[in-house]
Computed example of a mutant assay.
Amino acid sequence: MRLTILNTVPSSPAPLDPWEVLLSGPAPDAVRIGLAVPLSGPLALTAPSALALAGLAAEECTGAGGVGGRRVELVAIDSGRAPEVVAAEATALRDAGAIQTLVGFHTSDVHRALERAWAGRGTYVFTPPHEGGPSAPGVRRTGHGPHAQHAAAIAWLVTHRRAARWVLLGTDYVWPRAVHRAARTVLADLGAQVVGEALVPFGPGDPAPLLDLVVRSRADAVLLSLVGRDLALFHREFARAGLDRRVVRLSGALEENGLYALGGDATGELYASMPSFAASSSSTDERQLELQERHASRSGHDAPVVCAYARGLYDGVRLACALLGAPGGRAAAVPTGAPRLARADGLSFTELRAG
């Protein structure tokens, strides 16, 4: 899976293979950034977008003079594997001088393992929505925490969709647990109820108990913290059970690649709260539009979509380059706007005003 994905990255240069980099040793005329993205596992469906936008960021950094005159290269690390495996490979590359810094998006159990293992090895930029709480020295988190990401979206749905009875469903790891804690607080403050909750392992499983929980609890809405392929599979079963047109769904992990994977949605009842969404020509998100134009110019109009994870990774690579080239490793933070709420409309999203 990893080699297949790397070979389909549009434009050049493609990310370097970690084992080839270890064998060849450091390149004096290049700065190498470890790119920890899921090339396997539930989030692998986002990898083409992520790799393409990270490549654009590296190319733009090099074109602007690089880091101290050295070109910027990316070394791909498959962060879809077990946390301890990812952490061991990343630290081995750093200790061998094969990479100078680390940027990535992945699930928060991998993030925690990397955060512990990377200590004292420089900067690690983690770009997706995260679980909140303090971060270790050297770790730069550029996404939103659970409360910031979900509060306005939940409030909008309680008010505008009369969603008073909520079921919380997620994968059993760090980020969904944190999302559930934040959601319970937000819903209590709004006078709404949590009438059911479940956490399930990664991977395809029997959706029947989860669907039964939604029916038995007479839920108006479901907050979903499943990710990637698992999220898409659940949505399909939700629709097959006939629940998609009468129960509101909100996800903090649904972007365009996931929407494509589930075949789109035209019920008007599927919502996502993400840092950004792919923009149409009428969008007010000027940064997204400009980024899409540069991406299309580099990779063609049939290039992978600029989803929220990919845009976050683009910003993360640009930040890493700035940190490597700045005196004392200091650089301005990546501008992070408020999370955006959108409703699925076929194979795209229509943004709504949540705040």
Results as ranks from 00 to 15, higher is better:
M1W: 09
L3H: 06
N7S: 15
T8G: 13
S12F: 11
D17I: 11
P26V: 04
P26A: 08
V31Q: 05
L39F: 07
L39P: 06
S40R: 02
S40G: 04
T46I: 02
A54Q: 03
E60A: 04
T62P: 00
A64C: 07
G66P: 12
G80K: 11
E84I: 03
A90N: 03
A92Y: 08
G97R: 06
I99Q: 01
T107K: 03
V110M: 06
H111W: 10
R112F: 09
E115T: 11
R116I: 15
W118V: 00
V125K: 04
T127M: 11
P128F: 05
P134D: 15
A136Q: 13
P137I: 05
P137V: 05
G138P: 12
G145W: 06
P146T: 11
A151M: 03
I154T: 07
R162V: 09
L168K: 10
Y173R: 02
R177A: 11
R184I: 12
A192N: 10
Q193G: 02
L199G: 01
F202K: 00
V215I: 14
S217F: 01
S225D: 07
D230L: 01
A232V: 10
F238A: 03
A239H: 13
G242L: 13
V247W: 13
V248L: 14
G252F: 13
E256N: 04
E256R: 14
G263Q: 11
G264W: 15
A266E: 15
G268F: 14
L270C: 10
S273Y: 08
R287C: 05
Q288A: 14
Q288S: 12
Q288L: 04
L291T: 08
E293S: 12
R294E: 11
A296Y: 11
G300T: 01
V306N: 02
L319F: 09
L319A: 07
L319H: 08
A326D: 07
A326L: 07
P327T: 00
G329V: 07
V334F: 05
P335W: 06
G337V: 09
A342N: 09
A344E: 09
G346T: 06
L347V: 02
R353W: 14
